[in-house]
Design a protein around this nucleic acid. Sequence first.
DNA 1: GTATTACATCGACATACGTCAGTGTTATTG
DNA 2: CAATAACACTGACGTATGTCGATGTAATAC
Lengths: 117, 117
Amino acid sequence: MPVDLELAPKQKRAAGERCCEPVVYPDVQREQALRMAEVAKALGDPIRLQLVDVLRKHAGKVCVCELVPLFDIAQPTLSHHLKKLREAGIVDSERQGLWAYYYVIPDALEELSEWLS
Amino acid sequence: MPVDLELAPKQKRAAGERCCEPVVYPDVQREQALRMAEVAKALGDPIRLQLVDVLRKHAGKVCVCELVPLFDIAQPTLSHHLKKLREAGIVDSERQGLWAYYYVIPDALEELSEWLS
DNA sequence: GTATTACATCGACATACGTCAGTGTTATTG
DNA sequence: CAATAACACTGACGTATGTCGATGTAATAC
């Protein structure tokens, strides 16, 4: 997942010259960076990261009522975090009666994971 | 990298009963989540993610003056992003005369990368 | 010395974020 | 029907963020 991009070689600067030439920016990578940054941003909160951890570990679907006591935050705050994860495309939910079951969307983390490795 | 944590099994709720028992929260995972979330947060901006991408690709050290023309932002803004990456422990820099050279700290992304995979 | 270059820091701004108490919505219980 | 439970949404709050122009700092060129 590299940027298709060549950097100008470094060299001693002559008098009154800029140190480097401008480089063309490839739009190819831009949208991918936007997608991955969105995922990373959603994981950039310790509670959300642990939420994803729990959901991934329990490969099935987990009831919100089981998540609430795991964290020292109010229920609306947890609901807010789950919404953020939903908006980032990392998790999805299913209603069953009174309960809401959350699960990690398969391969949602794959692009970022591969770029990181 | 799992959370050491057991979830209460789901079951039909009897009249007037809560749907699940409270669960003990393990502090073991907490600090790891804080570290990984800090890294993820730093990667949660498309420009910073691309900065890391460029620096990783060019395994050596890259002059700031080569990074500026790659992005459509002012130089102080880029400096700000580099500072964020430094504070997150992802990159470090070296001064050489007028130039500053940035590089990715080896293994800085490893913990998050392994957790994601 | 002065001028110029590379980069960081400062101050300001609008926006986004994490958090909560309160409220609303929907489904189940009795 | 009314009461209760699970969860989402609203509005408010202080704080953090991304951005820029202006300024500061240190090194090189003349």
